[in-house]
Amino acid sequence: MTRTDPVIEITGLMTRFGSNIIHENINLTVFKGEVLALVGGSGSGKTTLLRQMLGLITPAQGSVKVLGAARYACDREEERNLRIRSGVLFQQGALFSALTVYDNIALPMRELRILSESMIRDLVMLKLGMVGVETQHAHKMPSELSGGMIKRVALARALALDPELLFLDEPTAGLDPALSESFVELIRALREELALTIIMVTHDLDTLIAISDRVAVLADRGIVALGSIPDIVVNKHPFIKNFFGGVRGRNALRVLNLDQADSGSEHSAPLVL
């Protein structure tokens, strides 16, 4: 992984809802080809930070640069390029309920007004194949799909324009363990194949460990830790100790053979209490 090619640069970011300060002086750089996970407790502003990168919420202070363009001060052409080069998977899928699966995926392609309908048809079927949705579902409405299927179709729509940058908001929330495992596997395979840079918000430890290269932990209005999972788990911040130190956290970390590193803190825990 080359650490020289920044895709997203956030500097001095501050967010405020009324008098409630969510973020203070956040600095974060996402490099090309990496998978960065944003974790944090409820209300720590993970989703808010993601939405600021997407251009949905304007920060009170600071700058967000995405793919070299200032997110909140770019002209129409730059804005359009940004939209083409990034894809988003929303938590609930956000499929247009009035359109069929096919039309949902075709919509961003049609919006470009340069692709012919026959090419769009090829590309939609290709994307459906990529995310493993059978073609017989193409004419269904989103309300006829199961939760796992909605996520897959939403992922296909996020990938419709071959983005370099993919944002995932809770990709496995609301999926059963088997489904979320296959979905994580799918994301991992597509990341390899399409050379994606992924920014992901997640609560799910298994997802976090399975696909993320680096983790940014949001707490106390800022990023309290940033690094690979082995670097993060040794951090002594109370949120991180709770997050990775619980039963579920330890079970999930066993995959990485990190329980050795973790056992030290486990022994010291009774002393602290």
């Binding site: 096919y102 048809r121 090829d122 939609v124 079927m125 290709l126 194949g129 990529m130 073609t135 017989q136 193409a138 004419h139 194949e193």
Partner: peptide
């Protein structure tokens, strides 16, 4: 090669009911 392989495997859109 991998991309064109996917294109070859692509299944045609079924006719709507």
């Amino acid at each position: 090669e991998r991309m064109f392989h996917r294109l070859e495997k692509m299944i045609a859109l079924p006719e709507p009911s």
